[in-house]
C-alpha cells in the first residue's frame, strides 16, 4: 500500500481526535465530579447540532459563530439537567441516575424526530469543501479547525482544572465530596459549574461538527460509543486521559479503516480497546486531571 494512503490516514485520525476529545472530556468530567454515566451525552450533542443547523438555516449564521449561542444554551441545559433530574437523585443508587440519562436521551431523540423528521439534513458552507494541502497530503478545513478548537478547549480545561482556584476546588470535590464540604467548599456550586462546562463543551463540538456531517435524530450515537471508549481508555474521570485517549482512538479508527479490508476496519478500535484494558484495567491515567 502506498505510504501516502497511510500518512493520510494518520492525519485524518489525529484531526478527528479534536472533536472526539470535546465529547469525551465532558463525559469524563461529569463522571469524575458527579459519578454519573451520562447516556444522554450523544443526544445533547445532537441537540446542539440541530440548534446550529436552525441558526444557519433561519438566520444564515455561520456555524462557527453560532457557538456563541449554542455553548451557553447547552451549558444552561446542562445546569437544568443537573438541577432538575440528577440532583434529586443524588442519594439514589447510581443506576437510577444512569436510567434517568438514558430516558433523557430517548426523549431528546424523539422530540427532534417529531420536530425535524427523520430526513438527513446538512448545511452547505464554503468551509465544508475547503482543504489545505501539503504535497500529496490533504487537511480538510473542517477537520483541521475542529482539531484546533477541540484540542485547544480540552487542553484549556486541563490547565483550568490544574492551575486555577476553581479547578483546585473541583478536584477536591472529586476526591472526597464530604471532606471538601467540611473544609468550606461550596460543593453544590462546583457541581453546577461542572455540569455547565461538560455540556457546554458539547456546544463547541456541535458547532464545529455540523459543517462536516449529516444531521439526523440518531447522529448522537455516532459519537456516544467512541466517547465511552475514550473515557474508559483514558481512565474514568481523567481529563488528561480523555485527551490522549481520543488521539489513540482516532488513529486506531482511521488506520483500521485503511489497513484492514472491508468493514472489518470498524473492529480495530474495539480490539485495541479490549487489548489496552487487559493490559491496564483502569485505563491509561488515574485521578481527576
Amino acid at each position: 500500500m502506498a505510504y501516502t494512503v497511510i500518512a493520510q490516514a494518520v492525519i485524518d485520525g489525529i484531526l478527528n481526535a479534536g472533536i472526539f476529545g470535546l465529547a469525551a472530556v465532558g463525559l469524563t468530567l461529569l463522571f469524575g465530579v458527579m459519578r454519573v454515566v451520562n447516556f444522554a451525552h450523544g443526544e445533547l450533542l445532537m441537540v446542539g447540532m440541530y440548534i446550529t443547523f436552525m441558526l444557519y438555516s433561519a438566520m444564515g449564521l455561520h456555524p462557527y459563530l453560532s457557538a456563541l449561542v449554542v455553548v451557553p444554551a447547552l451549558a444552561l441545559l446542562g445546569i437544568v439537567l443537573y438541577r432538575c433530574l440528577l440532583k434529586p437523585l443524588a442519594a439514589a443508587p447510581e443506576t437510577a441516575q444512569l436510567l434517568v440519562t438514558l430516558g433523557v436521551s430517548m426523549v431528546l431523540q424523539n422530540v427532534v424526530l417529531a420536530v425535524f423528521g427523520a430526513d438527513f439534513r446538512s448545511i452547505n458552507v464554503p468551509v465544508g469543501s475547503a482543504a489545505f494541502r501539503l504535497g500529496e497530503m490533504v487537511f480538510p478545513a473542517t477537520r483541521l479547525y475542529g482539531f484546533l478548537v477541540g484540542m485547544g478547549a480540552c487542553i484549556g480545561l486541563y490547565l483550568f482544572l490544574r492551575h486555577t482556584d476553581v479547578g483546585v476546588v473541583t478536584r477536591a470535590a472529586v476526591q472526597d465530596r464530604q471532606a471538601a464540604a467540611l473544609s468550606g467548599i461550596n460543593v453544590e456550586k462546583v457541581l453546577v459549574i461542572s455540569a455547565a462546562i461538560a455540556i457546554g463543551l458539547l456546544g463547541l463540538a456541535a458547532a464545529w461538527l455540523t459543517p462536516m456531517v449529516y444531521l439526523s435524530p440518531t447522529v448522537g450515537h455516532t459519537y456516544l460509543l467512541p466517547s465511552f471508549i475514550i473515557v474508559i481508555l483514558g481512565g474514568l474521570g481523567s481529563v488528561r486521559g480523555a485527551i490522549i485517549g481520543s488521539v489513540v482512538y482516532g488513529l486506531s479508527q482511521s488506520l483500521g479503516a485503511v489497513l484492514v479490508p472491508g468493514s472489518l476496519g470498524i473492529l480495530v478500535p474495539l480490539i485495541m480497546f479490549v487489548t489496552l484494558l487487559l493490559m491496564r484495567p483502569s485505563g491509561l491515567f488515574r485521578g481527576t486531571v
Binding site: Q8, Y214, V258
Partner: peptide, 13 residues
Amino acid sequence: AQDLTAQINKIRA
C-alpha cells in the same frame, strides 16, 4: 458512516 475519507483515499490512490 459519517466519514468515508479512508475509502475515498484508497480509491484515489
